[in-house]
Amino acid sequence: MSAKPNTDEKGEFKRQSSSFREIISAEHPIYKPASGRYWLYVALACPWAHRTLITRALKGLAPVIGCSVVHWHLDDQGWRFLEARDGKTNERHWFDIAGGINSASSNGSTPVANIVDSAHRLLIDGTNEPNYGHKRLSELYIKTDPGYDGRFTVPILWDLETCTIVNNESSDIIRIFNSSAFDEFVGEEHRRLDLVPRPLEGQITVFNSWVYDKINNGVYKTGFAESAEVYEREVTSLFHYLDKLEILLDEKYSKLEAEYGKTSQDKILARYFAIGDALTEADVRLYPTIVRFDVAYHQHFKCNLATIRDDYPRIHTWLKNMYWRHEAFQRTTDFNHIKLGYTRSQPQVNPLGITPLGPKPDIWPL
């Protein structure tokens, strides 16, 4: 997410490198595991933050690591928090025990045109910041490093004890959450879940590498291109790799179909994942981009050579499988934050700030 993207003289989008890359472990001299010590700051619109929310939920860390959600509208001063006007609201209520969005979700009946950028619906448009009363995410960066001059990005994994950012790189944060660092604070079911099992680590690394560069970041390189030549090159590359993903998932589905039979969809879907026969980090890192594709990237970033729902049947089946059969994916996905966040926060892409209503439904039934 970026209100003013980094582009070079050729009009190519360049992503900023993360500045804070510490880990949490029993062996670390400062950042040691503890319940209630660490805090996660996220935007529900942001795919990079989304992957950390999914992992936090999957690993049962919602009661262990608190969470604050910035407002979906990213203005020229960066991400902002809402104010708890009654002085009592604790944004932990935003997430239920599963780590997902509660019944106050913004996916309601309010017409999108009636939702203004300054909307102040606590626990719907965002949360307050209860630890310091900050109004802006940038204050956390300055508190950590008064001389910081980079972008103020989400996610942030924060240490309440030392009052500093531990890590602001999403790929690191999900590895921290997946590690055994917090095992003593969660149940056996969550301890058993390993998103990067050693036998599959090599395959996951290779998969993540091209998915990140060509798909996760590919939609941004397409949408933020500032010349027709750059745009056409990047959109062509993006769909080339979506084709590659479709072939990979088709091969996997066909093998499962041959094993179980075409009528045994439940058995097929129980093993239908990007890598291996169980949920892994590969699924967690791919999902935030694919779930945003039709509702945001297709029109907003001009990624309109095809849609997932109409042109990539195996990717579409995988997406529905993730969303409908895995609570951590569904309950951390807020389509209003996604649609509003992109279309209202990037005036260089969408100058009028009009949010398209379609496609409908946001995601098809399984």
Rank of each mutant, 00 (worst) to 15 (best):
K32V: 03
A328F: 15
F152T: 11
I65K: 06
Y31L: 06
A26K: 12
H71I: 02
D8N: 15
D311L: 01
E9R: 06
R314F: 10
P29F: 11
R151K: 15
P351Q: 02
D117P: 07
I115E: 14
W72C: 03
N114K: 14
L137D: 12
T153P: 03
H298A: 01
A113T: 07
L40I: 13
I142R: 11
G223W: 06
E188A: 13
L58G: 08
E281V: 02
S227T: 15
I204Y: 12
E83A: 10
T144V: 11
L256P: 00
F20L: 07
N114C: 09
T289A: 08
E281T: 06
R314P: 02
L249A: 01
E257A: 08
P288Y: 12
A98L: 11
S179A: 12
Y260E: 03
L195W: 05
I101T: 08
I173M: 06
C163V: 09
P359W: 04
N167P: 01
R192S: 14
F293A: 02
T127M: 04
V64P: 05
F273D: 12
T289L: 06
R198K: 11
F273Y: 15
T52D: 05
E9G: 06
P351D: 02
V116W: 03
L269G: 03
A49V: 10
F301H: 11
L248R: 11
C303V: 05
H134D: 15
Q346P: 03
Q299M: 02
C67Y: 00
Q299S: 08
D250S: 06
A3K: 10
F81G: 08
